[in-house]
Structure formats: C-alpha cells, structure tokens
Amino acid sequence: MIWALLPERPPHTPEVPGWPAFMRGCVRYRQSLDEQCPEAPRTTQEYPQQD
C-alpha cells in the first residue's frame, strides 16, 4: 500500500469517495482544465495500467 512508503504513519486511514463521487470530481477537474487552459495541447495517449 502506498501509505506504507511514508516516513511517518498517518493518524488514520484516509477516506476515499465512492466511484460516482470520484468520477464527478474527475469530470469537474477536467472541465476546469478546459476553462483555465483552453490552449493546452491535447493527446490521445492513455496512461499505462499498473497492477
């Protein structure tokens, strides 16, 4: 688990949103990029999967 790599232990296990809320946040983030950086180059390359 990624948290094990931290030099100090977090005080508690972090909370994560459920998938629907997470995906809404992703969409809002991507929309904000279009608004704030409309001239940014676009790519069709996908991120590699990590197992």
Rank of each mutant, 00 (worst) to 15 (best):
residue 46 E to C: 11
residue 45 Q to E: 12
residue 15 E to G: 04
residue 44 T to Q: 10
residue 48 P to E: 03
residue 25 G to Y: 02
residue 17 P to T: 02
residue 44 T to V: 11
residue 26 C to M: 08
residue 23 M to W: 14
residue 29 Y to E: 00
residue 24 R to T: 07
residue 30 R to Q: 13
residue 11 P to V: 05
residue 29 Y to M: 02
residue 38 P to F: 01
residue 17 P to I: 00
residue 19 W to R: 15
residue 38 P to L: 04
residue 25 G to N: 08
residue 37 C to A: 14
residue 49 Q to S: 09
residue 21 A to F: 04
residue 46 E to S: 12
residue 4 A to I: 01
residue 27 V to S: 06
residue 5 L to V: 02
residue 30 R to C: 10
residue 29 Y to I: 04
residue 27 V to H: 06
residue 4 A to M: 03
residue 21 A to Q: 09
residue 31 Q to Y: 04
residue 26 C to T: 02
residue 12 H to T: 08
residue 16 V to W: 14
residue 3 W to T: 11
residue 18 G to D: 15
residue 10 P to L: 08
residue 51 D to V: 07
residue 11 P to R: 09
residue 30 R to H: 13
residue 4 A to F: 01
residue 47 Y to E: 09
residue 28 R to Q: 14
residue 21 A to Y: 01
residue 25 G to C: 04
residue 22 F to D: 09
residue 42 R to A: 05
residue 15 E to A: 10
residue 3 W to Y: 13
residue 8 E to S: 10
residue 13 T to D: 15
residue 12 H to G: 09
residue 49 Q to K: 08
residue 27 V to I: 13
residue 20 P to T: 01
residue 8 E to R: 11
residue 4 A to K: 04
residue 31 Q to R: 12
residue 33 L to A: 04
residue 13 T to R: 12
residue 5 L to Q: 08
residue 11 P to F: 04
residue 48 P to W: 05
residue 38 P to K: 01
residue 10 P to E: 04
residue 25 G to P: 00
residue 3 W to N: 11
residue 25 G to W: 00
residue 32 S to M: 14
residue 45 Q to G: 06
residue 41 P to R: 09
residue 34 D to K: 05
residue 46 E to I: 04
residue 8 E to L: 10
residue 50 Q to K: 07
residue 14 P to D: 03
residue 19 W to H: 13
